[in-house]
Simulated assay, not measured.
Amino acid sequence: MELNTLELKNDLHALVSNTNDEDVLLRVKEYFTELKNKEDWWHSLTSQQKNNVEIGTQQLENRQKFSNDEVRIEVNKLLKRK
């Protein structure tokens, strides 16, 4: 079941209200503050990097992917040729 924003806020509020452990509350506050202040990594990418991510995402959606083992085999083949 997917929660809407209001339900999620209510659930978080209930968790905080029912917690008396100051250490837990401080850690949650620090984590929440960090998340709110953290810059989205997407904005730090160059246009070429963004393009590469978009191409990779499209390839995954089109089921054009290789397993780690498949890539390792191909790389080993290329390295042995040189």
Rank of each mutant, 00 (worst) to 15 (best):
N4D: 15
K80N: 03
E22M: 07
Q64I: 15
E22Q: 04
E22W: 04
D11K: 12
H43W: 08
R63P: 00
Q64N: 06
D23T: 05
T19N: 06
N76F: 04
E61K: 09
R72H: 04
R72I: 04
S17V: 11
E39D: 13
L45K: 10
L79H: 04
D69E: 03
L35D: 14
E22S: 10
Y31C: 00
S17H: 10
L78I: 02
R81M: 11
H13W: 05
L15A: 02
R81I: 13
A14D: 13
H13C: 11
Q59E: 15
K80Q: 09
E39T: 13
N20C: 02
K77V: 14
H13M: 15
V75G: 01
M1T: 08
G56I: 04
K65T: 05
V24S: 06
V71E: 05
E61P: 00
R27I: 00
Q49I: 08
R63M: 12
L78M: 03
R63E: 09
E54N: 08
L78K: 12
W41Q: 15
E34C: 01
E74T: 04
K36D: 02
N62E: 08
S44I: 03
N76M: 13
D21V: 00
N10R: 02
Q48I: 12
K65Q: 12
V16M: 12
V16I: 11
R81N: 13
L79R: 07
V53Y: 06
V28E: 02
L8E: 12
L78T: 04
M1S: 15
N76R: 07
V75I: 01
W41E: 11
H43N: 13
K77H: 10
K50A: 00
